[in-house]
């Protein structure tokens, strides 16, 4: 029996495979389609204080081995989530990680306060890295002082595991991870999408209404892996790896680079069973390689020279 449990902050995950925010709805859409109890955890769609209708269409466009999106954080708002979605999610034997987004520090705090009064939330993932909203989002995640302030303010409100989701659209992501650790975050998750663009050459118009969007999918996997490794080398904080993970081999690669857990995102759009297949693939890999505890893979990368 392979030990698959990993610990991220105070959070015990029965296995390291989570589903990424915005790719699994609020978790309830897929009840009956996949066995949710098998997942290490669900990261919900980003919740804001008030419901958001999202960006105008077109919101998605496919690019080679990836996709651009600009959904604009369309969501039902924290109150409706608490009243309508959380009671369903509570019944599952999996970690419920609530992703929150806001355009003001006070709003991040207010959302956490409301969620602290409920039961069923296992951890928070703070989104400071959405590239598709005017205020907040990337503006916070690319500014080191703002990042520090948000972590500091939200940390004071909860003893639950606090995960900060980082953007790759910065020069040194490890500087941001370092600040997160200093301000008391339990973990960082990376990467959010990479700013990208596509143009329709017939109409000469951008394929996304907001001109640029967030690139995700296998196209960004090497970028994500490099960022995970950079943080692993430079900061002592648990890392959740995200970016183009589609197969169990991808997941193992991220864990070897230093990720304690991983999130499956875009691949859920193609097959929502992907995370379940990845879990069985990881277990098989451990069995075949005589690895008894999955934690032994984490950060097991062998390098002879270090990147600059």
């Amino acid at each position: 029996m392979i030990k698959t449990e990993v610990i991220v902050g105070k959070l015990r995950l029965k296995n390291p495979v989570l589903v990424a925010s915005g790719t699994f709805g609020y978790g309830d859409e897929l009840i009956g389609t996949i066995d949710i109890n098998k997942l290490g955890g669900i990261v919900t769609k980003s919740l804001t204080l008030k419901p958001k209708v999202g960006n105008p269409p077109p919101r998605v466009a496919e690019t080679p081995c990836g996709m651009l999106n600009s959904i604009g954080l369309a969501n039902i708002g924290v109150d409706k989530f608490i009243n309508e979605k959380l009671p369903l999610l509570r019944n599952f034997d999996t970690a419920i990680i609530v992703n929150i987004a806001a355009k003001r520090i006070e709003d991040y705090c207010e959302i956490i306060k409301r969620l602290e009064d409920t039961e069923g939330v296992s951890a928070y993932e703070i989104n400071i890295s959405c590239p598709n909203v005017k205020e907040g989002g990337l503006e916070f995640g690319t500014n080191i002082e703002m990042t520090a302030k948000i972590v500091n303010a939200t940390r004071k409100l909860t003893s639950k595991t606090l995960i900060i989701k980082l953007t790759p659209n910065v020069t040194r992501i490890s500087e941001f991870a370092k600040v997160c650790k200093e301000e008391g975050a339990d973990a960082v998750s990376l990467i959010n999408t990479v700013v990208g663009m596509a143009i329709d050459i017939k109409t000469r118009k951008p394929k996304i209404s907001t001109i640029t969007g967030g690139l995700s999918g296998p196209a960004i996997k090497p970028i994500a892996l490099a960022k995970v490794f950079e943080v692993f080398q430079n900061v002592d904080i648990p890392i959740i790896g995200i970016g183009g993970i589609t197969t169990w081999e991808d997941a193992i690669e991220f864990m070897i680079a230093g990720a304690k857990a991983i999130q499956v995102g875009t691949a859920n759009f193609i097959d929502p069973n992907t995370p379940i297949n990845i879990i069985s693939g990881i277990i098989r890999y451990c069995e075949e390689n005589k690895i008894e505890d999955i934690n032994d893979i984490v950060g097991s990368i062998i390098v002879e020279t270090f990147p600059h």
Partner: peptide, 23 residues
Amino acid sequence: EAPMACGTGLCQGCAVKTRDGKY
């Protein structure tokens, strides 16, 4: 028809504007 990623409501990508200004 709208550009679509998942086809099942997960991605919220295929928005169509409604007459009341929502999607």
